[in-house]
Design a binder for these strands. Sequence first.
DNA 1: CTTGACCTTACAGTTACAGGAAGGTTTACA
DNA 2: TGTAAACCTTCCTGTAACTGTAAGGTCAAG
Lengths: 134, 134
Amino acid sequence: MNISEAARRSGLSAKTIRYYEDIELIAPATRGENGYRQYDAKAVEELHFLARARDVGFDLHECRQLLELQRDRSRQSRHARELVLEKSEQLQARVEQLVSMQQVLQAMASRCRGDEGPECAILDDLAHASKDNR
Amino acid sequence: MNISEAARRSGLSAKTIRYYEDIELIAPATRGENGYRQYDAKAVEELHFLARARDVGFDLHECRQLLELQRDRSRQSRHARELVLEKSEQLQARVEQLVSMQQVLQAMASRCRGDEGPECAILDDLAHASKDNR
DNA sequence: CTTGACCTTACAGTTACAGGAAGGTTTACA
DNA sequence: TGTAAACCTTCCTGTAACTGTAAGGTCAAG
C-alpha cells in the first residue's frame, strides 16, 4: 500500500511517516517501480505502535527505546515498565504544575471586576505580585 | 543597572531579556557609553510583569496583548479577564488530556509483570491496542 | 488528453529560548 | 602596571516534532 493508506491505518500523517524515516526511527520503506514508498501490514503495525506511544506521552527518543524493546526477543519487561512508570511520574509532575498555574489564574480572575473600567486586579497582580500569591 | 542585575531582579535570564528586545516585545534598552544596556526600575517592572505572565502560562503573543493592556490607560479590565479565563480553560483542557494519558500508562503498567522475561503487556498494548483501552 | 489525486524531494517556518564563539570592557588584586 | 575574572556585545547554531509550501513526477478516470 502507498503512504497515505499506511497513514490512514496507523494514525500518523504521511508527513510524519516520512519524517520518522528521515530521522531513522523506522527503516526506509521499500519502493515500488515508480519510487513510491510501499508498506505492508508489519510496517503499519510498527507505525501504529509509534502513534500509540506518542499518544500516551513518549517523546521520540523514548519511542526509539520502546521500539528497540519491541523488536528485541530477549527483552526484559521490566525495562518497558520502568519507562512507563517514569513517564507517568513526569505527567503527574506536569499536571501538578499546570493545576497550580491554573489556580493562580483563577485567583486573579476572581479579584478582577472584568468591566469597562481600567482598574484591573489581574494586571496589578502581574505587575506587582511576589512569587507566592495563591 | 546592567542586564544581569535586571535579570536577577526580574526573574528572567539575560538571554531572555535580549531575546524579548530582539522580537520587539519590549522597547530597546537605553545604552551606556560602553554600549551596555541600561535598565531602570520601570524597565525591570515590565520584565517582571513578563516573567509572571509566562509563569502562569501565557505565550509570548498573549504576553504582548497583556503588556498592551498594562500600558493602555483607557483599557477595559474585562479584556484582561477574558485572556485569563481563556488561558485557564486551556490549562484545564491540557490537564485533562495529561491525566487521561497517565491513566492509560497506569493501566498498562498494572498489567505488566515487569520482570526479567520478555512477555510484556505494555508492549503488547502499544502494538495492538485499539483507540480506547482505558 | 486532460484533470485531479496521488507521490517525490527539499527547504522554510514554528516556539521560546539556551549554548557557544569571538571579541570588547570593567574591576579587583598582586 | 599587568592580568585575570567577570562582565558585556553580536551573531550563529541547535532544540522538538513536526507542518506548510514549492516544484515537479505518476497514475487512474472520463
